[in-house]
Amino acid sequence: MKEFRADLHIHTVLSPCGDLEMSPVNIIEQAKECKLDIIGIADHNSTKQCNVIHTLGKQHGITVLFGAEVTTKEEVHCLTFFENIEYANLFQQFLDDHLPFVKNNPELFGYQVVVDKDELIVEQEERLLITALNVSIEKIEQKVHELNGIFIPAHIDKKVNGLLGQLGVIPKGLKADAYEITGRTNPEQLYERYFNQDKPIFIQNSDAHIPELIGSKFNRLLLKEPSFTEIKLALANKDGRKVLG
């Protein structure tokens, strides 16, 4: 077993709020600089920028998880990750089916572009990606798990778009693999107030929208190798795999 560094919440140029500098090349370069072994790509309601970064990451020895930061009907942000492009594409189909069509106005919200490894624009996403899917948090969690994915409510202690800010409670029966916290709240307080003294896994990520913030927060994971399956085991605290903090 070995320790790996993972920042699982990184936006790209595809997110309207993502800086245009958040290109595949820049993200991988910055991840290398910060000595990250694993990064999670999590654009708002889209997985379309993942594949290019995954391929580039492979060439540079960085494991890139296919993911998205989904906005549920309740406007709760949740991180979702998938094992490979096939599952990610199935989830993309689900996103396409459930994202209401609101046309993006780049002047108001920012540009939403998919770029290739040379930073050339290959697609401009017309639909506003920061609106909410018309699907509840429970249904989205179920869909992610049907696709063998990882489901992590994002920045739960954030007032806007965090699970606790939006809903005030952890919904009964929600099967989260972990919870992301901002680091601004004491975990002990959260356990006591919202988890009935259960101690689920908390992780912290950068939520980077600009290159300089990549790796500003990360998790140390004890794994056999930096793979999706191993990360899943660590989040479940199984077979000696662990989130070290």
Binding site: T71, K73, E74, E75, P100, V102, L128, T131, A132
Partner: peptide
């Protein structure tokens, strides 16, 4: 208070 609702 739901932005998506206002949008729609």
């Amino acid at each position: 208070d739901l932005l998506s609702d206002v949008m729609g």
